[in-house]
Amino acid sequence: MARKFPKLSKIQVLFLIFTIAIMVTIFCLSAQDAEKSSDTSSFLTKVAVKILYSDYDSQSPEVQKELWSKASFIVRKLAHFSIYASLGFCASVTAGKRRLFSAKSLGVIGFGFLYAMSDEIHQNFVKGRSCEFRDMMIDTGGVTVGMCVSLIIIGIIALFARKIHRSD
């Protein structure tokens, strides 16, 4: 007998679409060669340099290069973490209401880890890019944080729904 999949609510279907859209976005960003990827993050790096190093323009070219490198690293890793946190949030809402320590929650984290791994392997075939275990762990951390945020929000919504239901 064929096993039936649970019926998804409209919200879950919407977040499934968001999850797929984020996955496509990640794939497209990972398909950029190193030069294009650098250009993509340069604007944010420029902003980060201005925020983190107010005296950047008065520094020697060698120091500027070092500061730029540090800011670029921070921007790139935060970008990894952020987009995967979004993926974890959306995948978690798609999975539905549950406890933090459950098979579904482990499934969301496992899904995020596997997607991060496939993303890093994909980057290994792109000119100037590489497969980084560190990035996989940053990505998985992002998924985990995104999932935890979604569970907090789902819990708050459920709490308000119970209060409203009791007052009827």
Rank of each mutant, 00 (worst) to 15 (best):
I152Y: 09
T40F: 14
I51H: 03
K50M: 06
F111Q: 03
K50R: 12
F43R: 10
E120K: 01
D33T: 08
L106M: 12
Q59W: 02
R129I: 04
A95S: 09
E62H: 04
K36R: 10
E62A: 14
L100E: 03
M136N: 02
S58M: 08
S37R: 06
Q123F: 06
P61L: 05
F113L: 11
L87F: 09
F133G: 03
N124H: 12
A116N: 00
S69F: 10
T45G: 12
F125Y: 15
A103H: 01
C148G: 09
K46V: 01
I164H: 03
M137V: 15
K104T: 06
L78T: 12
S102A: 07
M137Q: 06
D39F: 13
A31E: 11
I156C: 10
D55L: 07
S92V: 01
D119Q: 07
H165A: 15
S82C: 08
V63F: 04
I157N: 05
I152K: 02
T45E: 03
S54T: 14
I74Q: 06
D119W: 10
G96R: 07
L44G: 13
A71W: 08
K97G: 06
K50C: 04
A95C: 00
A91F: 05
D119E: 09
D139A: 00
K50E: 13
Q59N: 04
G155S: 13
R99S: 12
K70I: 15
S150F: 09
S105Y: 01
G107S: 01
A103P: 00
K65T: 10
Q32M: 15
K65I: 01
K127A: 13
G146M: 02
M137N: 02
G142Y: 08
N124W: 10
D135R: 02
T140N: 00
C131V: 04
R166W: 11
S105C: 06
P61F: 07
G146D: 02
F101Q: 07
F81S: 02
A31T: 11
S72E: 12
Y56T: 06
G141Y: 09
W68G: 04
K36W: 02
K97T: 14
G128H: 11
A116T: 00
V93E: 05
G96I: 09
K77R: 03
L87G: 01
K163R: 14
L159K: 14
D135Y: 10
S86K: 01
L67E: 08
R76F: 12
F101C: 04
S38N: 14
D135E: 06
A48I: 08
T40I: 13
D135A: 06
I138A: 04
M136H: 04
E132K: 12
S54V: 12
V108W: 00
G128W: 11
L78M: 15
A71P: 11
V47F: 11
K50F: 05
Y115E: 02
D39E: 15
L106S: 08
F73D: 07
A95P: 00
A161T: 15
S37P: 10
R99I: 02
K70V: 15
L87P: 03
F89S: 00
I164Y: 09
S41F: 13
R99K: 15
A79D: 03
K46R: 13
L87C: 03
G141E: 04
E35G: 05
I83E: 11
K46F: 09
R129V: 03
D119F: 10
F113W: 10
K163F: 12
